[in-house]
């Protein structure tokens, strides 16, 4: 967990839960069961797989609680700073954001997206230079979501 990254930018940065899991039946069920027991709601979710293991990445409604519960249950887990970019749910929105990143030479480590209840799309990205990305996106009038806003989507 890198707490220095994005310090002072809490309202523009989302904390993602990242978790190491072996690629075996029942592993996800085990994780999901822990979250269920704690009443934690998953807002966005993806798994990156690599043969023998996977990395589960998710945004939840109570990150710190989820981290403690999973950590205490013995999982290898971390909190990662990512950006939550709000887009209109129309053709071309992704293109615009990608162009902003490309022009500013900001590299995307990974990204995943979903459609929200209020007709918006949310793109979650991890970038190599998060503070530069925040600055660049704000200059381009791109809306970034913080954790509080994410609870209401």
């Amino acid at each position: 967990m890198d707490i220095r990254q994005g310090a002072g930018m809490e309202d523009k940065i989302i904390k993602q839960i990242s978790l190491f899991a072996e690629n075996k039946p029942g592993r996800l069920a085990n994780v999901a069961d822990k979250l269920k027991s704690a009443g934690i709601n998953i807002r966005a979710f993806t798994i990156a797989e690599s043969g023998d293991f996977g990395i589960i990445r998710m945004v939840v409604d109570n990150t710190d609680n989820a981290y403690s519960i999973l950590h205490n249950a013995g999982f290898t887990v971390s909190e990662t700073s990512v950006l939550g970019i709000e887009m209109d749910d129309v053709p071309g929105s992704m293109s615009r954001i990608a162009e902003v990143f490309g022009k500013a030479k900001i590299n995307i480590d990974y990204a995943y997206a979903f459609v929200t209840r209020n007709q918006k799309a949310l793109l979650i990205v991890r970038v190599n230079e998060i503070e530069k990305a925040v600055k660049t996106l704000e200059e381009e009038n791109v809306k970034l979501m913080g954790m509080k806003e994410l609870e209401n989507i």
């Binding site: 190491f20 990156a48 290898t76």
Partner: peptide, 10 residues
Amino acid sequence: MNESAFSDRM
């Protein structure tokens, strides 16, 4: 795996 060696980046 331990948490100090784990990264969310593949």
